[in-house]
Computed example of a mutant assay.
Amino acid sequence: MYGATKFTVGGSLKLAFRPWVDGLGNVPADGPAILASNHLSFSDSFFLPAVLHRKVTFIAKAEYFTSPGVKGRLTAAFFKGVGQLPVDRSGARGAGEAAVRSGIGVIERGELFGIYPEGTRSPDGRLYRGKPGGLARVALATGAPVIPVAMIDTEKVQPPGKIVPKLIRPGIRIGRPLDFSRYHGMEHDRFVLRAVTDEVMYEIMKLSGQEYVDIYATVMKRQLADEAKADKEAEKAEKEAEKTEKAGKKAQRDETAEQRRSDPQ
């Protein structure tokens, strides 16, 4: 099913968007490897597999596989067809452990495992701090090489919240494999995990040319949501104040008119 779905989806994407790719030879023809990519758009998980000659398995939230109805079944079939694995993200720690186990399983089968170290899509096109729990642990537990990947302009193809994509040509830059075998067996050392993750993010930054922000994307998203909420509340308060002011002026005009009627002078 994967082959047929990849042929259909991949062929359609390449025909419609003509994505360019640089460094395709850095992906091994066989054997396990981890593809660590920046994350700009929902479509990243489709454009990258479309240009590769091998299957790459990404982690996807379990809701894509469990939604009810005909649409839900079609969505689940599609995500399974393009090689995505469901992970329950209801608990942060549980989700991380599930992602690590799934990643190790993919690597042990000698396949390509795709992961977004930022943990979520960038809210503004910048590159955010990588989370050390998934990428580094899988790399150190398996000894698999990490291949940095930069998605280019995919956020312009399908901006967050937009369903219909724009016909803009995106790009993909694939860097040289990174070897972390010197840290093998140290997947529980948080300082090593941080060092490995930061090294990968640095390589992604060089490939993508993105501005780097040394906070997690999830933190920025919360900040932006809080700011949007505060702006909305301020706008509402301003409108209420204007409404109150207008009501006060009207009441004053009505009172003045009433006084004039009662005092003809």
Rank of each mutant, 00 (worst) to 15 (best):
G81R: 11
K206C: 01
V9D: 12
G31Y: 09
A228I: 11
D30F: 15
E211H: 13
V106R: 12
L35Q: 08
V138I: 03
V100Q: 10
T142P: 00
F17A: 02
A95K: 11
N26V: 03
A234I: 00
P132I: 07
F191W: 15
Y216D: 14
T120F: 12
T142Y: 04
V21R: 08
F113T: 04
D263L: 10
I115A: 03
R190Q: 13
N38F: 13
L13D: 03
I152P: 02
L127K: 14
D198I: 06
P170A: 01
P68M: 11
F113D: 02
M205F: 12
D214L: 14
R93C: 00
S41C: 05
D231Q: 07
G72E: 13
K249Y: 07
Q252P: 09
G171T: 04
G133A: 07
D231F: 10
R261L: 09
E255G: 00
L40M: 10
G130H: 10
S12F: 15
Y2T: 09
S262Q: 03
R137F: 02
I215E: 15
G96D: 04
A99L: 04
Q252Y: 09
A50C: 03
T75Q: 15
E108A: 06
V9F: 12
K162S: 04
A237C: 00
R173F: 07
T8S: 14
Q259I: 01
A139E: 03
L48T: 01
F7S: 14
R260M: 12
K131Y: 15
R101T: 07
P264A: 07
V149K: 09
V106S: 08
I152T: 01
D254I: 02
Y128F: 11
A251Q: 09
P32R: 05
R169N: 00
R54Y: 05
E199K: 11
P19I: 02
D153H: 09
D153E: 03
S67K: 13
K246P: 04
I174K: 09
V149Y: 12
P264V: 03
K221T: 11
E155M: 10
D22S: 05
R126Q: 15
R261Y: 10
A139C: 01
E233S: 02
L74C: 10
T8G: 13
A95G: 08
I204W: 12
K14C: 06
D231I: 02
D214W: 14
A230W: 14
D124P: 08
T57D: 04
A76L: 12
E108G: 02
E111W: 11
V200E: 12
A50G: 00
L135Q: 04
V21Q: 11
G72I: 09
E108C: 00
I163V: 08
